[in-house]
Amino acid sequence: MLYTVIYCVYGDVMKIIISNSSSIPIYEQIKNNIVSQIMNNELLEDEALPSIRNLAQDIKISIMTVKKAYDELEKEGYIISRQGKGTFVAPKNNELAKEQAQKEIEEYVFKIINLSKKFNIDQRDIFNLFDILRGEEND
């Protein structure tokens, strides 16, 4: 498959990068792009997001895909849609973001446990590895 990146900038406000060769579904890539910008304060509370149809045309993705991303972002509390006015960044909820991150970490830990069981790797080795990598990060 060809490697394609679609890059799009909304006046300095919103950035979206989508890779067609990624195994992450496109709606999730859109979500991740927006969530990380909210978390990094690149998108601020009450800032207007492009309409679903506008964004779909600009990143050359189907309307339903963008809608799915927006629907989930709204369900998770990142954005709010106001009837007839558009979609806006919701007040930031750090607790929610932390919960989300914890869930993600759990999944990774699961994978580590499964892999280490499969190849009979000692738990201590994994903790050691963790300490080493963390140490490197602090340097």
Partner: peptide, 9 residues
């Protein structure tokens, strides 16, 4: 491939 991106159904 024309539809891969922009088609909804």
């Amino acid at each position: 491939s024309d539809l891969e991106h922009i088609a909804d159904y």
